[in-house]
Design a protein around this nucleic acid. Structure first.
Lengths: 125, 125
DNA sequence: AACAATTATGAAAATGGTTTTCATTCCTGT
DNA sequence: ACAGGAATGAAAACCATTTTCATAATTGTT
């Protein structure tokens, strides 16, 4: 794989907040002028996850999602009614997840936390 | 959906230790004399997960896996390699989720937490 | 019982993300 | 410049899952 290509993918990944699917990354690359094929994007991501340079998770719908390692991550509180989103601090969860995983002898821990609710402006008034 | 069918699927699920894919459940049903189509199995599982009567996770290869679940609210630590699962107590997360939601003026809070990692037996040694 | 209306079923086709194939293009070292 | 290997991407293959749609089973009504 060409370093130039790897760098482009990494940059695209870094420019996206949180996890992104291969196709989203591909779209981002197109937007920023790079013309990489989808195949190549998949190849890069695969190699990067193999090197632990990128985190990989599966979304519930089966689509894979990638995140540049080292990117600080946070969680979202999503309104089920209007879709509005709030970023939330999750220190407590980070350390909890780590502790629980280690206690079970699991390695390479990831976690996804999804908070939903009804926001103030949707909940009546 | 016919209750008879739902029962058959539930029974098959219960006869399997841990998580099973839709296709594994379908195979089990065939072995035990039931002749249900794969489509119907998928339909049942979908409805059961919608009711929170079965747990659903994604294996790393993208295949979905199902497990009959109890009524208590809990979280899972899932091995991304073999799909093995450990139930996790999450007192800390329950209260955290509640606190964060209230601080943002959201109501009717729900949360899902998914912990994944590589279990001891899959991570080499 | 007869019969219409509704629901359940499953084979085959469609979907959609991901991987393979393979012919072509791009590098790299000599 | 040139041979040999690596990188690329369009199209085809893959595979779990969903949809379609025609048929079968069930239910309700007279």
């Amino acid at each position: 794989m060409a370093r130039k290509t790897l760098d482009a993918v990494q940059l695209a990944l870094a420019s996206i907040d949180g996890f992104a699917s291969a196709q989203e990354i591909h779209a981002r690359l197109r937007e920023t002028g790079h013309s990489l094929g989808l195949t190549t994007v998949y190849r890069c991501l695969r190699s990067m996850t193999g090197d632990h340079r990128v985190d990989f998770v599966r979304r519930d719908d089966g689509e894979g999602a990638y995140r540049f390692c080292g990117t600080s991550h946070h969680h979202h509180l999503v309104c089920r009614s209007c879709g509005d989103t709030v970023e939330v601090q999750a220190e407590a969860v980070e350390s909890w997840a780590q502790t629980v995983g280690e206690a079970s002898n699991f390695r390479d821990l990831h976690h996804t936390v999804e908070l939903t609710g009804i926001c103030a402006s949707c909940s009546g008034r």
